[in-house]
Design a protein around this nucleic acid. Structure first.
Lengths: 133, 133
DNA sequence: AGTCTGCGATTACATCTGTAGGCCAATCGA
DNA sequence: TCGATTGGCCTACAGATGTAATCGCAGACT
């Protein structure tokens, strides 16, 4: 954690919906951003209006996933929830919910679906070696 | 992306909610079951009423995740959606949505969280060997 | 100073989800 | 045969989510 972003051990991290996640993604790539800038990043691909983005931003503020800082007359938005924490949490949730907390069966399913690329396999081998050390 | 037709016959795999999933689990363990039997399996742990289970069952029928067969005056419910297909689909969704379709970063996250047991690691090594052949 | 304009806040509304109650037909026990 | 029970179906309703329009204010422009 080179970064000062607190991982903030608040009791219950409020769930982030799929639409909200798209907004988070933009902010994880670059931040802080204004609402309009976020819209530039996501409105084309999802076919949203600026109003929609604003709603999502304020919901994310409520959920304390992002924070605002005043910049003159408007706000800049930046993530509070770290991308890593979110990804880790979601991954964990899936594994717990569907695979009894075991990662191996998940891996097996992905393999069965041929969802693993050669690069994945190579990377994971490296990873596993690391873990055994 | 060669999206292609899914393994199943139906064109659009309707999303199954978390509560509905609990019902599916019971039916994947044993089927066909009556509504009351499903309730016996899940009502204690989730603190549901029979009415709730019935609602979930009918929603699952609508979503074509399960099917009914008449048994005298009542119905027996059995899964149409295979557990494997569901798990595979959900895993795939997560990987696609959060990790750009790459499995390796998912495992990196799980590893970082220490969500991998020794058994997982061993199993995955075996699996990887299989895959390299 | 007065208007225009861009911005966050407020409000709206349809759908989905969680959770359940009530209605009505069929069936079983007496 | 007739009521009690069981079971599916329809209805309900609050909260979350997707999607957006509108309101009111603080600066910018003239």
């Amino acid at each position: 954690m080179t970064d000062g972003a607190n991982t903030m051990a608040d009791g219950k991290p409020e769930r982030i919906s799929e639409a909200e996640y798209a907004v988070m993604e933009a902010l994880w790539v670059r931040s802080p951003l204004t609402a309009a800038e976020v819209c530039e990043e996501v409105c084309q691909s999802r076919d949203w209006s600026l109003a929609t983005v604003k709603t999502l931003l304020s919901r994310l503020v409520t959920k304390q996933a992002i924070a605002t800082e005043p910049d003159g007359r408007r706000f800049l938005y930046r993530p509070v929830l770290a991308r890593t924490d979110y990804l880790g949490g979601e991954s964990r949730r899936l594994v717990d919910r569907l695979f009894g907390g075991r990662a191996a069966p998940l891996f097996a399913h992905l393999a069965e679906q041929e969802a693993l690329t050669d690069a994945d396999i190579a990377e994971m081998e490296t990873l596993l070696k690391e873990l055994r050390k």
